[in-house]
């Protein structure tokens, strides 16, 4: 084990795979000499050179297309969109091309690439640089979507994503980049499609992913002071979603609060809630509730943005409302 930040951990995942497999390369805007907008790729240009750490033009469409075409032709690309907000520019390449190739071609194509997309609010980066768009991507059959919270999973899911034979959208949460945690050394894989209980509790399940897992852990400590023990479930992977872990938790607690930073309407929380209602209804002692951002663009001004992002206090209030 070593103590790494989230950004160091996800970088270590990329570096280890690039050392192991010459077919892995990284391409994106300012990933080379500059080292990534948030320093995610620092040192990689020096180690692997411009042929494997490729600075691209500002052409998101061509970047996702590059990943798709190179993957179909035998490489294992990692491509980066500087912000997940830019995926709209490259959506056709992702949802009509990469995601559908395998199915449309009758299973005779393999498109193994990772599209890294930094997401989330918290920096006053305003409406076009702060969104959480995992639900958009989850709606498209044919791609996997992962969204790690812990530094260990930032590394473990990176390695698993690179080795996966499908297009994987790896959503890295910007506010987590500086989060420190214990990270296993060397080859470490977090399985795609497995959630985890990151805090055990008996009274209410707080189900979340990305940065909101941290918010839920804080809320759980506060709830404990009120005499309610919360279980915190970190989904880790959005697609495929590990319903079983969620059902098992709710079976134990009888109450579910789903927390995400994305806007409320048609957020992935709606999917979790629907599955839970269909398959776990008998376990529930209270309605399923969601704590989410409101249905607004992400605001710029700090007090507005603070209000936009779900807080531990809001999670506590929602949870206590179920008793």
């Amino acid at each position: 084990m070593s103590t790494l930040t989230y950004v160091e951990a996800l970088r270590e995942g990329m570096v280890l795979e690039m050392r192991r497999d010459p077919k892995v390369f990284l391409a994106g805007e300012d990933v080379g000499l500059f080292g990534g907008c948030f320093g995610q790729t620092q040192g990689m240009f020096a180690e692997f050179g411009p042929e494997r750490v490729v600075d691209t033009p500002i052409s998101e469409t061509a970047i996702i297309g590059l990943g798709t075409g190179a993957a179909a032709a035998g490489l294992r690309p990692i491509v980066e969109l500087m912000f997940i907000d830019f995926v709209g520019v490259a959506m056709d390449e992702l949802f009509n091309q990469a995601a559908k190739m395998r199915y449309m071609f009758g299973g005779k194509a393999k498109v193994p690439f990772v599209a890294r997309m930094p997401a989330g609010a918290g920096f006053s980066a305003a409406a076009q640089h702060s969104q959480s768009l995992e639900a958009w991507l989850a709606h498209i059959p044919g791609i996997k979507v992962v969204m790690p919270y812990s530094p260990a999973d930032a590394k473990g899911l990176m390695i698993s994503s690179i080795r996966d034979d499908n297009p994987v959208v790896y959503i890295e949460t910007k506010t987590l980049y500086g989060l420190k945690g214990e990270v296993p050394e060397g080859e470490y894989l977090t399985p795609i499609g497995k959630a985890a209980v990151v805090r055990e509790g008996s009274d209410v399940s707080l189900i979340s992913w990305g940065a909101m897992v941290g918010t839920c852990l804080t809320a759980a400590e506060q709830l404990s002071k009120s005499g309610k023990e919360a279980e915190v479930v970190d989904l880790k992977t959005i697609v495929p979603f590990d319903l079983e872990t969620v059902l098992n938790s709710v079976k134990k607690t009888g109450r579910a609060v789903i927390v995400h930073e994305a806007v409320r309407t048609a957020g992935f929380g709606a999917e979790v809630a629907a599955e839970l209602a269909e398959k776990g209804f008998d376990s529930l002692n209270a309605p399923i509730v969601r704590v989410t951002a409101p249905n607004t663009p992400v605001p710029f001004s700090p007090p507005l943005e603070k209000e936009y992002i779900p807080s531990a206090e809001k999670v506590v209030k929602a949870a206590l409302g179920l008793f």
Partner: peptide, 19 residues
């Protein structure tokens, strides 16, 4: 999708150059 082959072609050509 009209025009969708263009970026994919660039990607395949990138792979040939890389390899």
């Amino acid at each position: 999708i009209v025009g969708a082959g263009q970026p994919i072609a660039a990607g395949a050509a990138f792979a040939s150059k890389y390899l």
